[in-house]
Each structure stands twice: as structure tokens, then as C-alpha cells.
């Protein structure tokens, strides 16, 4: 019996990368899972990899879609009767450019996938968590939620907004047994990074490898962090001890962020 036995977690963007690593960690501790992601085939492969039978299910959808975010929470509750843990791993950016040349579409996409997804999911989840006086909400934010990088405004601004949401919601529901935290991760070589990284690098005038190297060089460890690092901290936050940890913007960045 794991520490999360009987608990239910919804993970938006849970079929690969950091979301899947967190799903695996929670599954190992006994939780039941509802994962979402854009591509059904990745949903299938994630379920196969987790291999926990009825304790995991997948719903197809996209964090930029309000209806999907609300549906993920609704389907989680429909299947398992409740939701204890929400993790939002939806994130990314596209068409990055310096602000002087940044398109509305690029900023809108960044705000939708990073920030609005967090808001929509949280509002829907709190509807169930507040009456049960228990909940754990975790956003995958970024070191870019604390500092800035030129050319990445469509990522940096929404991640800062996610951190602001973290602080505000933590204060709103702090006495109701619900904690809200942001994991401010350094760059990870994940599918999302491999998807949006090369274009981001190009807009910054460098190669993808240079971009990863840049992130690594900013850290004290001179290397990238991993999805397992995030999963480890997420496990602490959903444990019993996590009751005393909320409103945190937790750096998982090899010593990059200055605060």
C-alpha cells in the first residue's frame, strides 16, 4: 500500500515528459490517475507504460482548450468519484520572437497553454476540492517564471502569471486543506522541449544544442535537470508532510534562479 493509495490525480499533459514521470511516481505510490494529452497514441502508450490497469485512464485533449480542461476534471470525478490531486504540465511556446516583433497569436498561444490552462483546471478542480476540504495542486512552471530571457516573452510572461496564480490560490484555500505549488523547473530535454525548442533556439539565433547548453551553463551544476527531479518534488508535495508546504515557487533548476 503506497502513501497515495485511494487518492485520485488528474494530470493535464500527463502522457509524456514531466507529466508521465509524475504519473509514474504517483502510480508507484498507489494513486489512481486520469491523464490527458493531445495525441491519443501517446495516451495509449502512456497507459501501457504505467501498466496499472483500471487505476489509469486517458482522455484526449489540449490544455489550450477550456472545454477540455473542464472535461478532464469532470471525467476524473465521473470515473473515480473525486479528485485529490491536480497537476498541470501543459506548457510551451511557439513563434517566439522579441517583443517588438512578437505576434498576438504567439502570445495568445503562450498564455493559453501555460496560464489559462492552469486557471481553467484549477477553477474546475477547486469546485470538488473545497467541499472535501482536501486537495493538492501542482503547476509545472519554470525558472522562466522567476527570471526572464530575451526572445521568450510568450513563455516567460505566462509562467510568471502561473506563479502569481500559485500565490493567490494558496492564500484563498490555505485553511481548507488544499495546497498550491509551482515547480520552477530548469530546462529539461523532454518531448515538449524537443518540439518547441529548436524553433525557440532559431528565434534566438542559436541551435537547439546551444539553447540547452545555455540553460545548463546558467546553473550551478552545469547540466540540465530531469523529469524525475520534478516527480520527486511532486511526491513530497502530495505526501502527508506536504500539508505544510503551499504557495511555493520551488526551484528545480540546479541552482539557476536567484531566489
Amino acid at each position: 500500500m503506497g502513501e497515495l493509495s485511494g487518492q485520485v490525480a488528474a494530470i493535464c499533459g500527463g502522457t509524456s515528459g514531466v507529466g508521465l514521470a509524475i504519473a509514474q511516481a504517483f502510480a508507484n505510490d498507489g494513486a489512481s490517475l486520469m491523464l490527458s494529452g493531445r495525441r491519443a497514441e501517446k495516451g495509449d502508450s502512456a497507459l501501457a507504460e504505467l501498466n496499472i490497469g483500471d487505476r489509469a485512464a486517458y482522455v484526449q485533449g489540449d490544455g489550450t482548450d477550456k472545454a477540455h480542461c473542464e472535461d478532464l476534471i469532470a471525467q476524473t470525478v465521473a470515473r473515480y468519484g473525486k479528485i485529490d490531486i491536480l497537476v498541470n504540465c501543459a506548457g510551451g511556446s511557439k513563434d517566439n520572437a522579441p517583443v517588438a516583433e512578437l505576434s498576438d497569436d504567439a502570445m495568445e498561444f503562450g498564455m493559453n497553454v501555460n496560464f489559462w490552462s492552469s486557471f481553467w483546471l484549477t477553477r474546475a478542480a477547486l469546485g470538488h476540492m473545497i467541499p472535501q476540504n482536501y486537495g493538492r495542486i501542482i503547476y509545472i512552471s519554470s525558472v522562466e517564471g522567476k527570471v526572464g530571457k530575451p526572445g521568450l516573452a510568450a513563455y516567460v510572461a505566462p509562467k510568471h502569471a502561473v506563479n502569481a496564480l500559485t500565490k493567490t490560490v494558496a492564500r484563498e484555500v490555505g485553511t481548507l486543506g488544499i495546497t498550491v505549488n509551482a515547480l520552477c523547473a530548469g530546462a529539461m530535454d523532454t518531448p515538449m522541449m524537443r518540439e518547441s525548442g529548436p524553433e525557440a533556439a532559431e528565434s534566438l539565433g542559436m541551435t537547439y544544442e546551444d539553447l540547452l547548453g545555455w540553460f545548463a551553463q546558467e546553473s550551478a551544476t552545469k547540466r540540465l535537470v530531469t523529469v524525475e527531479d520534478c516527480a520527486m518534488v511532486a511526491s513530497l508535495l502530495v505526501s502527508e508532510a506536504g500539508a505544510g508546504m503551499t504557495g511555493g515557487m520551488i526551484s528545480i533548476d540546479g541552482g539557476t534562479a536567484p531566489y
Partner: peptide, 21 residues
């Protein structure tokens, strides 16, 4: 733990959401 090799320089709050940053 060994698993925390990438966590360094952290000022890790265990304060129930007191600190603003």
C-alpha cells in the same frame, strides 16, 4: 537523497505559504 542531485541553491520554504517569494 541521491535523487536530489539537481536540487541545489534552493531556499526551500516549509512555511504554510508565508513567504512572498
Amino acid at each position: 537523497s541521491d535523487a536530489a542531485a539537481n536540487l541545489t541553491g534552493c531556499l526551500f520554504a516549509v512555511d504554510g505559504g508565508t513567504m512572498p517569494y
